[in-house]
């Protein structure tokens, strides 16, 4: 491996890590607060991508501008899903929760296929052809924008959780929901908001990924496994952890592709995943286990 490849792999890894982090931030919220393994998370991302696609195609909107619409829309979508589907099974055994999110996954993917057809769609914008070059390292401007948004989102959520009352309530529910209820927190409301935020994050990740990738009804599954890895790596419910975890997995896949092969790169990811689960199940930055 020469330096040119090294720096390129480094840059690509970090930039892709930004996307992984963005998808994982929403998932870590849901997994951390509600303790639900949400297999339908990737479908929220897919629907977010479709929303951006249609807004761009029909109304000629800038893909990044569509965030103003996708974020609130999917926040409410998440609240509804939580209120009517997730809430009734919060106390059910884990297998029922998994079954429900799997059912939702199948339903949403096929709904999208029914509505939008099975074909691949992608958008072309003014940014698409803007490539930045530093030395021998190349990257698309759209990747950089996505990366910056990932950091902004994560930091904003982090501050929100640390500083605001609502954020503190969410954290309290994440750590000890029964205790939170005792001190007068409306746990049900907090759950709805947390799920809404999680869904909105997934959709925002979709909007930001749209200028780089493509959308079809089954793209959600592509991201969801990696997102689980990142969440566990960073610690469930830990936003900064998700961000750093995203970078680590991004780099691992990037260097895995260079050193082993692109087909084997996920092997690196899953091996890290298993090792983290075994050795540090609270994640790299976790302190205690729930």
């Amino acid at each position: 491996m020469n330096w040119e490849i090294f720096f390129q792999a480094l840059t690509s890894g970090i930039l892709t890590g930004g996307l992984f982090a963005l998808v994982a931030v929403g998932l870590t919220m849901i997994l951390g607060v509600l303790k639900i393994i949400n297999f339908a998370h990737g479908e929220f991302l897919m629907l977010g991508m479709y929303m951006t696609y249609w807004l761009c195609t029909l109304f000629n909107m800038d893909p990044y501008l569509t965030l103003i619409i996708t974020i609130p829309a999917f926040f409410f979508f998440g609240v509804i899903i939580q209120r009517w589907l997730i809430n009734p099974i919060l106390d059910a055994p884990m297998e029922i929760q998994i079954l429900l999110t799997l059912g939702l996954f199948i339903f949403l993917a096929n709904l999208a296929q029914l509505l939008f057809g099975p074909h691949v769609r992608s958008i072309e914008t003014a940014y698409t052809f803007k490539i930045l070059t530093i030395g021998s390292v190349n990257f698309a401007s759209t990747r950089l924008i996505m990366f910056i948004f990932a950091i902004i989102f994560t930091t904003a959520l982090y501050i929100f959780l640390k500083k605001t009352d609502l954020g503190k309530a969410i954290r309290a529910c994440s750590e000890e929901s029964y205790g939170a209820m005792l001190v007068g927190i409306n746990v049900k409301r907090v759950y709805m908001i947390a799920f809404g935020i999680g869904t909105a994050c997934a959709a925002a990740a979709g909007s930001l990924a749209m200028p780089i990738y493509y959308v079809n009804p089954h793209i959600g599954a592509t991201f969801v496994m990696t997102a689980f890895v990142v969440v566990v790596l960073g610690g469930m419910g830990n936003f900064m952890g998700a961000l750093v975890g995203g970078f680590i997995i991004g780099l691992a896949e990037s260097f895995g592709a260079v050193i082993l092969s692109a087909s084997l790169k996920q092997l690196v990811t899953f091996t890290i995943f298993v090792l983290i689960l075994l050795l540090r199940p609270t994640g790299l930055f976790g302190t205690k286990r729930s």
Binding site: Q97, L99, L102, G103, L104, F105, F107, N110, L111
Partner: peptide, 11 residues
């Protein structure tokens, strides 16, 4: 879709 919906309803 129906299959997914039925899974949800069972839950």
């Amino acid at each position: 879709m129906a299959y997914g919906a039925i899974l949800i309803l069972v839950c």
